[in-house]
């Protein structure tokens, strides 16, 4: 009998990351892209979650802590622990920090919409945070930095023209599991890495409950979808048809969220159709 050598069959996991290489690359990205925009300072919303913490760590490495401004923007229903977790990041890095409560601004509008459901209320909060962030950008002469990861971008799990508005985003091409690995490498406080991710727009909200799938499974499936695998091939590899359908539906239903608004083309010089100039030209 000859031995039969074959690879073990297992359900694919999320893609890995070399965090040292990614860090080096993202630090260079932040430095170069700020230079192009003639900026030396960054401002970002610090939620107490792992995504904005990683972004703050990267900004501090790239620009120096004195050039990084973190803004905590709680709403009255935000968990108190979120503020405390954000403070851990500020302490660890020695970056600037301000706290601006958005409750009055949000409620100032929502008083006219008492029947707004949780989703609408969450969107108003997210957009209000961007109003604050961009105004702080003008005040501090600092460029807003985005903190959305690739998983939430692909699943459409963000507020359009809110979380996605800052002109630079260092972690937008990293899946959530890669962000966690990067966080460990960068020395983000363990509490922020280990706790259940939450948009913190409603009480006891968690991302994975909202989405109906774990980040680990979602990232593994997303990775294979991006590489061109069909749903049938994903099921062959061990994922449940329900999980695959859920992820596929979210990706296919949110392509519009990953684009700029659609403008009617009427001329042969339509911007970004015929008149094509790169963002850094």
């Amino acid at each position: 009998m000859l031995p039969i050598v074959e690879p073990a069959r297992q359900i694919p996991g999320p893609p890995g990351i070399d965090p040292a290489v990614a860090t080096e690359w993202l630090v260079a990205f932040l430095r170069d892209e700020l230079v192009v925009r003639r900026q030396t300072r960054a401002v970002l919303g610090l939620s107490g979650g792992v995504d904005s913490a990683v972004t703050a760590f990267l900004c501090a490495r790239a620009l120096g802590p004195d050039n990084v401004y973190a803004i905590r923007m709680p709403y009255k229903t935000s968990q108190a622990s979120s503020l405390a977790d954000a403070a851990l990041v500020v302490e660890a890095l020695g970056i600037h920090c301000a706290t601006i409560d958005i409750s009055a601004a949000v409620d100032g509008y929502l008083q006219y919409e008492p029947n707004a459901d949780a989703r609408r209320r969450g969107n108003v909060m997210a957009r209000t945070r961007m109003v604050v962030l961009f105004d702080q950008s003008a005040k501090l002469d600092a460029l807003p930095i985005g903190t959305g990861n690739k998983t939430e971008r692909l699943l459409g799990y963000f507020t359009w023209h809110a979380d996605d508005t800052p002109p630079l985003n260092p972690i937008g091409d990293l899946l959530k599991c890669q962000v966690w690995e990067l966080a460990r490498y960068l020395g983000v406080p363990g509490r922020l890495i280990d706790k259940a991710p939450t948009a913190d727009l409603e009480a006891d909200q968690t991302d994975e409950a909202d989405l109906g799938i774990s980040y680990r499974d979602a990232d593994a499936i997303l990775n294979l979808i991006l590489l061109g695998y069909s749903d049938a091939q994903l099921v062959e590899r061990g994922f449940s048809p329900q999980q695959v359908a859920l992820v596929r539906r979210r990706v296919d239903g949110t392509h519009w969220k990953r684009h700029l608004p659609t403008t009617a083309m009427l001329t042969g010089t339509a911007i970004n159709e015929f008149y094509l100039r790169p963002v850094d030209f």
Partner: peptide
């Protein structure tokens, strides 16, 4: 344009 972060030690 550099890409591919899964390798060990470099893109």
């Amino acid at each position: 344009p550099g890409r591919g972060i899964e390798n060990d030690g470099e893109l």
